[in-house]
Design a protein around this nucleic acid. Structure first.
Length: 659
RNA sequence: GCGCCUGUAGCUCAGAUGGAUAGAGCUACGGACUUCUAAUCCGUGGGUCGGAGGUUCGAAUCCUCUCAGGCGCGCCA
């Protein structure tokens, strides 16, 4: 806000696009500075010092907002001295008045962003890697909504894939009683133990099935049989599979709800097929010549997107071309994805049928696509037809995502191709110690006895991974242990949720998280707990002030002539809120949120601990004799509490009034 | 083989558009609680930003090469 004001004036004066700012090495020089003059020196053929001096004079005669003075230092830096009282006078009452709306950009009517995240195979429990996806997606959605977009969040359910087939086959045939033609599924449902979550049982079962497949090839035939029956959609097994997937999806939704993650729509892959999305897409692609039918070579009999031809790899010759339709006529995942992407933009003439899934803990209705649902026109809301599409998928799927975008481009949907964003993030792996703790043997991890690796990939196939619900429970337990007083259940849950979201958010997208229990269970320092603590502390101060009947009414004459270092620090932090969030909305680098939030909380802690940094004694705000100063400092606390609350909201962390 | 990503303090990581002396947290050591909440704060220690060239007045940041690690290149999803 301070820097934006200066940047606006400078841009006008200099006619350049971006103004870089930084912090001077000595505080005496100024509160912040810019090196624009240095970079201008060459093209203007003037010494940077001279440019800076001239510019400073021009700025001084027409001071930007909140500026007290502008100085110059060699070799040509512009140093800005902030008029802190003026800033306080504008900023604090605005924060207090606007509350949740403070710093929010004006909305952009009609601009809709479609965000897909989570999209976990509905055949087993979620693990912490899936959680990273959900937290990233949910946070981006929150930030974009705040930025003024209308958002639609969807969770894609791949119910037609082999993973579901595997678990169904395992349930029906791996252990007695086996399914027999004509029988009902009562005995099969009876296999689920009462003392274990549904999705946990499937987790183990899936891993066991992968193991059994190698030993017992007859299961392969069974699997093939189950696959066809599910695809046929008429056999009772198809209904059973759908029921199973539905139950798992329910488990997933319950899991992420613990981290305040909700959706607008569940999109079932089977509905993409049933609604004939592909047929339309196929014609479009063929019409544009984007598809090629292979009559020879390794992809003989397939419809492919040409994407680089045949290349030599470590494992021999391979084709880079992407198959969309297999030689047996069936559709690949990428094929479905192209059709689905078209639907998201409203480019398909076809639509799903919808019905209500149920209301969620955030009060919003969750919809699902369904064969027996209603057409979109009959609903009060419309799904899809987005301006921009963000797919939160891990980086390993970069190649197929590229194919999807390329298909759009080839079909002539250039604008939509450019607005298709693959939000790619690195996976979560397990540290050596974590892998050991999970009891993963070397052989199960697929490694030699002497081999040592830094990290281990989680694997559904081998059942190696930290299950999301376990992790949430562990963090909760840890938070309770670490507290110096008994915690209410709800407080522990909130702290755990904040800690987990923070942990999954603070890494940059390119950073591979090597999950380590010690690291992930930390409750001190750079953690979500710190943010909650700072917020709750501010609440406590305000609560106590009210109890003591201290007048919190803002008066502009309460501002001191000189602000202390920690007061300035907090004020500066508060003033950066809007630009910090806006920046995240543009870059989608959500780790910048935790970075800013931590900085803000730190500046508050510093202010709280040392409001008068030079003094020997620090007086608690509510004991201050100077009523003006008391009002000012308590107003700062209040403003912090509001802005921190807004930050917590944006990161999906529930607020606590006291811990 | 080709492509993408990563390499910054003992450990885990930030460092958007190139800017002045590269920052946090954890760990270690030393200090501050009859409290507005010590899950906090203050201090000390810790770095040839993987390496080598180059561009630039100026490079952790841009370019080239190189070393090390991860991932991708399925008629899986």
């Amino acid at each position: 806000m301070i820097r934006e004001g200066v940047a606006r004036v400078l841009k006008e004066l200099l006619n350049i696009e971006e103004i870089p700012f930084n912090v001077p090495p000595q505080q005496e020089l100024g509160d912040f500075s810019s090196a624009v003059c240095l970079s201008m020196a060459k093209q203007r053929r003037q010494s940077p010092m001279k440019i800076a001096q001239e510019l400073a004079e021009r700025l001084k005669s027409k001071l930007p907002p909140y500026m007290k003075d502008i100085g110059v230092s060699p070799p040509g830096y512009l140093n800005f001295i902030v008029d802190w009282p003026a800033l306080a006078q504008d900023l604090i009452p605005r924060i207090l008045q606007e509350g949740e709306l403070f710093g929010k950009p004006v909305s952009q009517p009609g601009k809709k962003v479609f965000i897909e995240h989570t999209s976990v195979n509905p055949n087993k429990a979620m693990h912490i890697g899936h959680l990273r996806n959900s937290v990233l997606g949910d946070t981006v959605a929150r930030v974009l909504k705040w930025s003024g977009f209308s958002t639609e969040v969807c969770n894609y359910i791949d119910d037609t894939g082999l993973q579901v087939v595997d678990v169904v086959t395992a349930l029906l045939y791996l252990a007695p009683p086996s399914f027999t033609e004509g029988s009902d599924f009562k005995a099969i449902w009876g296999k689920f133990p009462a003392d274990q979550p549904f999705d946990y049982f499937c987790w183990d079962l899936y891993a066991r099935f992968q193991n059994e497949l190698e030993k017992n090839p007859s299961l392969l035939e069974k699997r093939e049989e189950v696959l066809h029956k599910i695809e046929g959609e008429i056999h009772p097994i198809a209904g059973f599979a759908k029921e199973l997937a539905t139950k798992i999806v329910q488990s997933h939704l319950e899991t992420v709800a613990q981290l305040s993650i909700f959706y607008d729509l569940l999109n079932w892959e089977s509905d993409i097929i049933a609604r004939g999305f592909w047929e339309t897409t196929f014609e479009l692609l063929k019409g544009k010549g984007a598809l090629r039918f292979e009559t020879e070579g390794p992809n003989e009999g397939c419809w492919v997107v040409p994407f680089g031809g045949i290349v030599e790899t470590a494992e021999g010759m391979k084709s880079l071309d992407k198959i969309l339709v297999r030689s047996n006529g069936s559709l690949t995942y990428t094929g479905k994805d192209v059709a689905y992407q078209l639907w998201k933009f409203g480019l398909l003439k076809k639509d799903f049928l919808y019905k209500r899934w149920g209301s969620q803990a955030n009060g919003e209705m969750l919809w699902t696509t369904a064969k027996e649902g209603e057409p979109g026109e009959k609903l009060s809301k419309s799904f899809g037809h987005a301006e921009m599409v963000i797919n939160v998928i891990d980086t390993r799927q970069g190649y197929p995502q590229q194919v999807v975008v390329e298909c759009l481009r080839q079909m002539g949907f250039k604008k939509e191709a450019n607005k298709s964003i693959h939000m790619a993030y690195e996976v979560v792996n397990l540290s050596q110690q974590s892998a050991r703790l999970l009891g993963a043997s070397r052989s199960r991890l697929g490694m030699e006895e002497t081999e040592e690796k830094k990290s281990y990939a989680m694997s559904g196939r081998s059942g190696t991974g930290v299950k999301a619900k376990d992790f949430i429970q562990m963090v909760k337990q840890k938070v309770i242990e670490k507290a110096d007083h008994p915690l209410k259940e709800s407080v522990a849950s909130t702290l755990a949720s904040a800690a987990i979201r923070y942990y999954l958010l603070k890494f940059t997208l390119e950073s591979q998280i090597v999950f380590d229990f010690d690291e992930a269970l930390k409750t001190t320092g750079d953690t979500g707990v710190y943010l909650e603590y700072a917020h709750a502390r501010a609440c406590s101060i305000l609560r106590k002030a009210k109890e003591q009947k201290i007048d919190l009414q803002w008066r502009k004459d309460c501002i001191p002539k000189q602000l202390t270092e920690t007061e300035r620090g907090l004020l500066d932090g508060l003033s950066k809120f809007s630009s910090a969030v806006s920046k995240t909305g543009k870059t989608l680098r959500v780790s910048q949120l935790t970075e800013y939030a931590f900085d803000l909380a730190t500046s508050f802690s510093n202010f709280y601990e040392r409001p008068d940094p030079g003094a020997d004694v620090q007086t608690p705000f509510i004991h201050l004799r100077d009523q003006e100063l008391q009002t000012f400092r308590l107003s700062l606390v209040w403003a912090f509490q509001k802005v921190m609350g807004n930050m917590l909201n944006l990161m999906g962390m529930p607020m606590l009034e006291r811990i």
